[in-house]
Computed example of a mutant assay.
Amino acid sequence: MARHVGMNEKKLKYGFKEVIGIGLYGYFLNRILEIAKIEVEQTKRSVKQIAQHTGYKNGNNLSAAFRKKFGMPPLEWRRKFNSRGNEPSE
């Protein structure tokens, strides 16, 4: 990525954190987990399928990261979300 924007890696990481307020890795991890959360809420895909789509090696890794960020595992999040009258699609 640094090469793509024409700067060295250290400058990119430092500048990104200065502007965005979070490191590059943390930013991407948050974005991936937000995508996973949307899929949990709005689809009937399995955790394994969502994990594969978001780049995790397996559902357990996604579940652990999801729980750390959102305070509960994906399937529990889905149940709570759906209990509020939201219905996921295929």
Rank of each mutant, 00 (worst) to 15 (best):
G15Y: 12
I20W: 10
L62F: 03
L62H: 00
I50P: 02
G85Y: 04
K37T: 02
I20H: 13
G85T: 06
N30K: 03
I20F: 08
K80P: 02
E76P: 03
I35P: 00
E9C: 12
E18C: 10
E90Q: 06
I20E: 10
L75Y: 03
M7N: 09
Y27G: 00
P73K: 13
F70A: 02
R84N: 11
L24N: 08
I38F: 07
A65W: 00
F16D: 11
E76V: 09
G59H: 07
G15E: 07
V19N: 06
G15T: 11
V5Q: 14
P74K: 01
I35L: 09
S63V: 02
E41W: 08
K13A: 13
T43K: 13
A65R: 00
P88V: 12
T54F: 01
F16Y: 06
E9F: 12
L33W: 00
E39W: 08
G6S: 07
N60M: 06
E39R: 05
S89I: 12
T54H: 01
P73Y: 02
L12W: 05
V40M: 04
R84E: 08
F28D: 07
S89T: 06
F66N: 02
G85P: 04
R84V: 13
I35D: 05
E18G: 12
Y56Q: 03
M7G: 14
L62S: 01
K11P: 06
K13Q: 12
P88Y: 10
F70C: 04
T54P: 01
I20Q: 15
L12M: 15
H53P: 00
K17H: 15
K69D: 05
G15A: 11
N60D: 06
G26T: 04
L24C: 15
K48I: 04
I20Y: 07
I20R: 12
T43N: 01
E9V: 13
F28R: 02
E87I: 12
E34L: 00
K10I: 12
G21L: 10
S46N: 02
Y27L: 01
W77E: 03
Q52N: 14
R31Y: 12
R67I: 10
F70Y: 11
R31K: 05
A2S: 15
I22A: 15
E39F: 09
G6M: 11
R3C: 10
I50S: 04
G55Q: 07
N61T: 09
Q52E: 11
